[in-house]
Amino acid sequence: MTITNSIYNVLFRRNYVFVGAVFASAFAFEMGFDTISDKVWDNLNKGRQWKDIRHRYVEEE
């Protein structure tokens, strides 16, 4: 009850705070989503992509 109340008072009561939080979380979401979907994608295509076979052909380093 108190937690929900305080969340409401902090985040949702003032519109500019709410809208700001929405845009901030949009950016945060984008970063997190990109990272996660990259991981999922690489996992689904393990061994198929260039970065997985690149080491066979690069001698130096």
Binding site: L44, N45, G47, Q49
Partner: peptide
């Protein structure tokens, strides 16, 4: 749907 080309096969 969710598969890339097999780049070793492309090579």
């Amino acid at each position: 749907w969710l598969k890339t080309f097999d780049h070793a096969a492309l090579r």
